[in-house]
Amino acid sequence: MSDPLLHIRGLQGYYGESHVLHGVDLDVFPGETVTLLGRNGAGKTSTLRAIMGILRRRQGTIRMNGADLLRTPPHRIARAGIGYVPEERGIFASLSVAENLTLPPKVAEGGMSLAEIHRLFPNLQERAGSQGTKLSGGEQQMLAIARVLRTGVRLLLLDEPTEGLAPVIVQRIGELLRTLKAQGMTILLVEQNFRFASTLADRHYLMEDGRVVAEIRREEMAGKMDLLHETLGV
């Protein structure tokens, strides 16, 4: 197998005095879709925030394409080729849809053009002048994903993209992620919706108490259902 695009070893993370990550180990290889599964508070979102430098107090190793992200200032991490779609989407209320879409700077060549994005998400073109937060939840999620696709990133970090959305929208997001995967995008997905994640991912990392407790390949899923049920309560 090739070298991992994202390589994390012994990641410890802290919010103030609170120790939230207790030695996370994971790898994401180019072109893979990998999910972080786990209950609330397992450390999934904190892992993504640690990668992006939003969780400032962290120790261990985080490498993106060989570059040491722990030594990279937070504003340069995206330039390593990482696009972050946060929990609750992070759409800016004071910006229009078009402004939200063009806000993140390009970090590399090869991102989608606005025309391609509008073809993929026609609603974003129709409502370009509307306030970003006036969109429906599903449209906001599409906008949150679309704006990082413009930037030419190689790795997408998606934090609960289906949270609070209607089944038909969840299905559309699933289709979108399959399209991106087919185009070679590497995706690290945090999900509570196990059914959604299980159809998309090549591998799953099961997290509990701020660490990875199991790695499950797609083909191993059937044999690990008891473990999944026990850990996730699904």
Binding site: M52, F92, L103, P105
Partner: peptide, 10 residues
């Protein structure tokens, strides 16, 4: 509005 996220965008 959200400096942390803007910084995460690079």
């Amino acid at each position: 509005e959200n400096p942390t996220l803007v910084q995460a965008f690079g």
